[in-house]
């Protein structure tokens, strides 16, 4: 994009680079917010369809504008700051949540060249940024100075860090196979990985269990059903969002759904070939379709899976959640790090 600004519009290199970068950032952030609005609608529709209901169908054709109507309503509402709350931190918490949710998208590749920050350690960056997500929740729970948000914040913090451990080990297995932690290199390493035909790590016997665990862990990491104990409405009202209103309430939702989309994107990138077409055959002009369309299709598919799970699986109990994280996923992912690296030493590096 820098070339375009430099050659077509005749800018100097520095200025062209700067304009291109800002344009790239806005091209990620603004469509992402639009996507979040639409994906909330999709979530509600899928959920309704599985429960044999209609879902939102009043605002706009097929109810497509429902999220925008909700957004406008929330925007015009009063921001209530409880008198007992810690005012500064109370307002900073939604800002942190949303900023962190946006920031992780900086390294996601949308095509062979279309990546904002092509850093060597992209996967580590994603892990680091998603580990910051805890703070928005904990700070909001503490600053509210109210029982339910505080309980919810403690639960959320313990849940997120528990599943981050196994996510770390799962990522190691992927890095071992790709030999790099750059996200584009990981995608390219998947060309024809499955039987020389499928562009996906998930069809590898050693990585398939890792993918299943990653899918479940990403549900737990984003506190989606069946792991939505942080906002278990039968126990904790609305969890850490209880005291929030207006747009600061909506920011938690936007951030949460942006994180869900990020996890769907990571599932696609790490295990299903990201912007690559699913099959490594060029019968139809398969590779001519722009990469981001494949990536979006995969993200949408994984989001559908997330909604499907939400509509069908009952909520876990907290002890069951902890047992799954520490006694099942952690030992299993550790064992697979040993198995995967051992297999690679024997076959590739030995």
């Amino acid at each position: 994009m820098t070339d375009f600004f430099q050659n077509t519009l005749g800018m100097s290199y520095e200025f062209a680079w700067f304009t291109a970068t800002i344009a790239g950032i806005l091209l990620i952030a603004l469509p992402l917010m639009l996507a979040v609005a639409m994906i909330i609608y999709v979530d509600r529709k899928v959920w309704a369809a599985i429960a044999l209901r209609r879902g939102p169908n009043v605002v706009g054709p097929f109810g497509l504008l429902q999220s925008f109507a909700d957004g406008l309503k929330v925007f015009l509402q009063e921001t209530i700051i409880p008198s007992a709350a810690n005012k500064g931190l109370f307002l900073i918490a939604p800002i942190v949540t949303f900023t962190v949710a946006l920031l992780a998208w900086a390294v996601i590749p949308f095509g062979p060249e279309a990546v904002l920050a092509d850093i060597n350690i992209g996967l580590l960056y994603v892990l680091a940024i998603s580990s910051l997500g805890v703070y928005g929740v904990v700070v909001s729970g503490w600053a509210s100075n109210s029982k339910y948000p505080f309980f919810s914040a403690m639960r959320a913090a313990a849940q997120m860090i528990s599943y981050e451990v196994s996510i770390g080990f799962i990522l190691i297995c992927v890095i071992l196979y790709a030999g790099s932690s750059n996200l584009n290199t990981i995608i390219v390493a998947q060309i024809g990985h499955g039987f020389g035909l499928v562009n996906a790590f998930a069809f590898n016997l050693l990585l398939f269990p890792m993918w299943v665990m990653f899918l479940i862990s990403s549900l737990a990491e984003t506190a989606r059903a069946p792991f939505d104990l942080t906002e278990a409405e039968s126990e904790l009202v609305a969890g850490y969002q209880t005291e929030y209103s207006s747009m600061s309430f909506a920011l938690f939702w936007l951030g949460e759904y942006a994180n869900v989309l990020l996890m769907a994107a990571l599932n696609a990138i790490l295990f299903f070939g990201g912007w690559l077409p699913p099959l490594n055959i060029d019968l139809i002009p398969w590779f001519d379709i722009p990469g981001f369309i494949w990536l979006f299709a995969k993200i949408f598919f994984f989001f559908f899976v997330f909604s499907w799970v939400k509509a069908t699986v009952p909520r876990f109990r907290y002890d069951q959640l902890m047992r799954l994280g520490w006694k099942v996923f952690l030992p299993l992912s550790l064992a697979f790090v040993v198995l995967t690296s051992g297999w690679l030493m024997l076959t590739r590096y030995g």
């Binding site: 892990l127 680091a128 860090i161």
Partner: peptide
């Protein structure tokens, strides 16, 4: 030192500070 930088975020900000 990009790796050390991210390590600082992952270990200190993400774990120790929690």
């Amino acid at each position: 030192a990009e790796f050390i930088a991210l390590l600082l975020v992952i270990v200190y900000v993400g774990a120790v500070a929690v």
